[in-house]
Each structure stands twice: as structure tokens, then as C-alpha cells.
Design a protein around this nucleic acid. Sequence first.
RNA 1: GGCCCAUUAGUCAAGCGGUUAAGACACCGCCCUUUCACGGCGGUAGCAGGGGUUCGAGUCCCCUAUGGGUCACCA
Length: 485
Amino acid sequence: MPGQVRTRFAPSPTGYMHIGNLRTALYAYLIAKKYDGKFLLRIEDTDQERYVEGAIDIIYKSLKLAGLKHDEGPDIGGPFGPYVQSQRKDIYMEYAKKLVDLGAAYYCFCSKERLAELKQGQEASGDTPKYDRYCLDLSRHEVQKKLDEGHPFVIRQKIPDVGTISFTDVVYGTITVNSNELDDQVLIKSDGLPTYNLANVVDDHLMRITHVVRGNEYLSSTPKYNLLYEAFGWEIPVYIHLPLILRPTGQKLSKRAGDPSFEDLVSMGYLPEAIVNYIALLGWSPGTTQEIFSLEELEEQFTIEGISKSPAIFDIKKLIWLNGEYIRILPLEDFNRLAMLYYKGAIKNENIDFMKLSKVLQLRTEVLSSIPENVDFIDNLPEYETSLYVHKKMKTDENVSLASLKTALPVLEELQTWDETVIHDALISLAGEMGIKNSQLLWPVRVALTGKEVSPGGAIEMASILGKSETIRRIKIGIEKLTRY
RNA sequence: GGCCCAUUAGUCAAGCGGUUAAGACACCGCCCUUUCACGGCGGUAGCAGGGGUUCGAGUCCCCUAUGGGUCACCA
């Protein structure tokens, strides 16, 4: 294929970037990068009824967050602009008229009422709704007359009566349909704006798109677009249709069903890099056993051959794992900065060394939003049962624990400096002196300090983070609970 | 319903006529260990069903079933 590879991401501004959309953008981007080509952003806003305020900003923001930089687009311009379809209205009309001249399209003056009636009748008799070509044979003169009289009109594509149409998709292979399955769809709406059916063809050609990357839902309408390319005498792009991403119950992802958007996932505590990594693997395989990919690695290793045909289910479990992997490799400072957003709401105590907390928490965090529940004991020691002190493997029960806490209390109170090393040495040697296992001393202390079954660190780490006076206070509470028991 | 597409473990998936059918998540067990987690080791679990073609089929063909997509003046 001569010339430079050019792909595009062409979302309509609905205000919601779902995971499937993002993945389409990602693959289009990767294909461009892989072949050293250009990736462009085009806004498909030809349906003004669906316009949502601020939706374009969400698109910019999402792409930026995902690291998908476009080379041309509404915000940065480019040689084939404008990149917003509503600003290209005249272009589409011009090409639609050309199609009429070519005999590949025709004016239609049917009212919406007539169309609705027609459809209703066809459905009632069990037929597939299809335009009846009422206006197809209007003479040039009749058409001109109606236009002069100011009748509202649409321009419809004229599908050949007979024959089959084939096209080849890189992932799905050659697909053939009967032209009688196709409807004479509207190309230009009565508001003068084009439908997707015309706009995508005109723009992809004018913007020199070489590889059309889009969701599988366009597979069945692609033959109609090919007819248009052929009528214009334009080169047909390489088609790459992507399998759908489904929700765990098997349906298409949807906003209505509550499936999270990309931004939702980010605000739920997933890192953009992890999400991108995860969706790259939903529908594509590198052919190796590598699972962790930076965007740069994807750019190098992505292959069109690796795209699969079958739909994939969005499995949050694997994303959680992957997110944990990304969190663990973060520099401590970066993790701390991210975690701070969650600490703020959960911890009011100002004496906490957050960096110290982050250090123990980082290994244990898979999703940032789980942080608050993991650190809730810091501000307030939870109410807990003395049964927490009973642990078979640690060889502790209430009696052992009470003895351990009572012995540990004065030792800790005497400590002049309060850091992990000092606390560690004091407690470990104490266990030695007492002739008990480390766990028989440390488990009770950890329980007393946190009041929880699990905590983001052991007794020594928790004591260090909570500080001396709070540690002492909590151990006393523990002793009291166990004494009462 | 018509047309189009898909179907390897619970999930993502490798496989492109001859394999003990990779790997990952999840799950289970063991080890490490002051809890949990991390890490290490091991395990359970799969070619939707039926016909062909072939010396040989997860791989090719047909049928059935299931799932999905599409049939708009939405994209």
C-alpha cells in the first residue's frame, strides 16, 4: 500500500466514552503508530438532537488521559480540516449532489408520516421495513419543481436492484451480501446535514484515511459505503472491524446498564495505564505470553493479525489484578501522591506520616478506592471482639494475648525513640525473654492497635505509624478488654 | 423474523491438519511470613453438538444450537 497510513477515531459527542469506544481509539492509534502513520480525531456531530454539552471535552480529556495523542483534530487543526462534521455541511451537500448526477442517489420528498405509515404496514405484514422507492422515478423536471417550491427533501442512496456486494475486512474476511437486503438509506437529512452513511465515506476519503477502524456494528452496513466509494471512483480503505466488548452478562456495554466509562474507572481508582493495558488485551493477543504492556510497547508490538473475531467480556477481576501490578511498580512518591487523595477523606489525624503509611500500603493496594476502608482504623480504633485475639496459627488466645500486652506495655512506654528499628528490637527481644514465639507477642499487639482482622502492616509497622501515645492507649484498651473477658 | 458475524476452562486467550491443547485472571493447596498482601511452587477446569473431508481435525466443509450485531432523516 503506497502512501502514509492514516487512521482516525471518529466518536460522536454523546458525553460518555465507554470502554469499547476507548478501545477502538486505542487500536486506531496503535495501527497508525505501528506503521509510522498519522492518527486523527474527527467529531461526528451530524445529529444535532444528540448533542451533549461538554461532550467534546470529555473526548479530549479521555484521549489525553489514555495517552493517545492525535496528530490532527479540531483542537490542533491539520491539513484536512475542519475536523468537526457540523462544520463541513456544504462539503457533504456538494458530494451528495454529485452522487445524484452520477445516478447513485436521488431526491426524496416523502413526508415522515408517509414513511412511518409505510414502515408500520410492512412490519404488520411481517416484512423487513424498507423504503418503497416512491420518489425514485421522479423526473428531473419534477424534482426541480419541488425544490423550487421549497419542499423539504432528503437525498437517498440508490442501491442496485440485483446482484451481490462483497468487501473484505482484514479481521472478518470477505463478506458478501445481496443488494436486495439493503435499503435506500438517507444520505442527506431534511435539515441539510448528512447521515453517518455519507459523512464517513466523504470524510474518510477527503482526510485520506487508509485504514478504517471501527466497531463490529458497522459490519453489516459497510457494503453500502463501498457502493458509495465505487460511485465516486474512490479507493476503498482497508477495513478493520473490531469485535464487541460485552458486559459479564453477555450484552453490549451500555451507559444505561451502569457500565463504567473510562472516566468512571479512573475515578474508581484504576490507573489509566492499567485500563489501556487491559483493553488492549480484550480482543487482541500479542501471540506471546506477555501481559504487561506500556503504551510504547503496544505501539511496537501491536499487529492487526492479532485482533480476534469473537466478542470479549469485560472482566473487572483481571483489571483489578493488572491495576495492582501497575500500582506496585509506581515510585513510592507517586503512589503517595495518588493515595493522598484518598487519605484526605479518611484520615483526620494530622500526626500521621503518610509516606510511611504509603510504604506499607502500596504492596497491598490493587484499586486506589479501597484505601479508605484499609486505613479507617487510624483515626478510630474500631470496636472489636476479644475473639480476634484467638489465632490458632499464631498460637495465641485471650490468655496469651493478655500476658503479652501486659508485658509489652511497660517496655514500649520506656522507649525514648519511636521508630521501626527500635520498636522491632524491643519487641523481638522481649519475646525472647518471655520464651514465646514472636507471633504470640506481635499478633496481640497488632490486634490491639488496629482492632481489625487484617491491616496494612504488622504490629511494628502499625505502632510506628500510630505513634507512641496512641499505641500505648490502644494497648491499654486491649488489656482492659481482655481483663474483662 | 431476514441478513451478517462469532463459538478453545468461570473470564481473557495461544493454536493456523499430526501439540502431553500454551500463558494470564479468578479459584484451591503448599511454602515464605508478626495479620493481610507481595513473591515462589503446585492443582482443579476447555475445543458447543452432530455429520462429513482426510491416514490423521480444536484447526477445512455442511447442518443444528447458543450468543451477538444490524435492519432509523443514530452513529
